[in-house]
Each structure stands twice: as structure tokens, then as C-alpha cells.
Amino acid sequence: MSDSTKGVSRRGFLKGAGSAAAATALLDSAVLTVREATAQITGPPVYGPGRTELALHVNGSERTVLVEPRTTLAAALRDELDLTGTKVVCDRGACSGCTVWIDGLPVASCMTLAIDAAGRKITTIEGLATGDKLHPVQEAFIEKDAMQCGFCTPGMVMTAAALLERNPDPTLDDVKEAVSGNLCRCAVYPQVFEATLAAAKKRKASQIAGS
């Protein structure tokens, strides 16, 4: 929450600790200006159907987009912010090719409205590396040749990397479960499993060496 506390509204504060309340507070502060908003006498603000300015926290920086409420997060990232690393394949939540993280959790950005992601922490494939240093999962995918056409790869990498964030020492079954929704037309699944396990191992070794 650190980068968004400044925007927490009084209403959000009063409502207390619930994650849902916090999300509303974030939305209130993240919708910067409302164009075409219908005048409301009472009740919560109405956004759209025209374009609304949203603050998206993407890969550590605050970006502003002007989109309609129907715009998906995938479309906002690709078309508004030029972050085309996120791929849209099925556009129905069925292939996980469009996986990004919201507050650290992998989600299908094609089935997420951008307005629902406003004010939350979004991480895309472009934000996974630290400067020039690739994420261990990215390195391992290259080493183990875990791609053919590469179209599923950004989603696959985001999913595998999210697993290592919450479970640094996964079993093969954990990896299979984590990527169970990521479809790969070229069927590089064995290499994906291998690369993810190798990345976990390497990361652990470097952490031990570094400590």
C-alpha cells in the first residue's frame, strides 16, 4: 500500500482494514478525472461510458491512461502504454497468455477491466527484470530453451515467476499446478517445468552464497 496511501480517502479509512474497502479507496483516488461522468445526486460516482482518466501503477511507476470502463487491462497495457510484451491470445481467460500480476497475484489481463486494476500494483513481463539483469525464470527459460514460437512465453514466465515469489522451493507438481492454465500450442511444457525448477534452484543457491 505504501505507494498509494496518500490517496486513501476518508471513507476508505473509516471503513477500515478490509481489502475490498482499500480497493475502493484506491479506485476513488486512482480515477483522476471523470469525463462524461453522469451527475449523481446520491450514491457512488458513475464512470463512463466515455473515457475516464485512470492511474495505473505499472512496473513501479505511475502511468495515466484515458480509457472507457469497457477497456480491459490487457488493452490498456498494450494499446495505451505500448507494453506489448503482454500477449492477447484467446481473449476469454482460457489460455493465460495474457498473465500479469496484480498485487503479486497472476491474473488474466484480458478478463480484467483496467478500471478494476486502477490504483493497484501491476507487474508485466517488461517489469520482471531488474535493470539489465533478467529475472532468474527468464534466464532459465533461455538456458533450457523453454519456448518455440514464444507466443505463450510472457504469460508462462509471469506465472512461473509468481510461483517462485510465493514458493521458493516448489516441487514438480507445484510447477505443474501453477502453470496448469497456461496453454502452449508448441507444447514446450517439459522445458517449462525444467526451467522453473532450475530457476528456483539457482535462486536458492545465489541466496545462500549471498547471505
Binding site: R11, K15, A20, A21, T24, L27, T38, G43, P44, P45, V46, Y47, G48, P49, G50, E68, P69, R70, G93, M111, T112, L113, I115, D116
Partner: peptide, 30 residues
């Protein structure tokens, strides 16, 4: 997907007041 207006409710009462013709509840939205 056609255009729509978007409202976030913070209480059940607020959401109930929004229901009616042309309105759709969205939870996860999947």
C-alpha cells in the same frame, strides 16, 4: 463488448439501490 457505465458499491444497500433494468452486477467479472 458494448460501452457501459461503471459504479463501485461499498455497501450492500448501495449496490441494491443500483439494481434494475439494464444493470448488471459484477463480482470477479469472469
Amino acid at each position: 463488448m458494448d460501452r457501459f457505465e461503471y459504479v463501485s458499491a461499498t455497501t450492500v444497500a448501495e449496490a441494491l439501490a443500483q439494481l434494475g433494468e439494464g444493470r448488471q452486477v459484477k463480482a470477479g467479472g469472469i
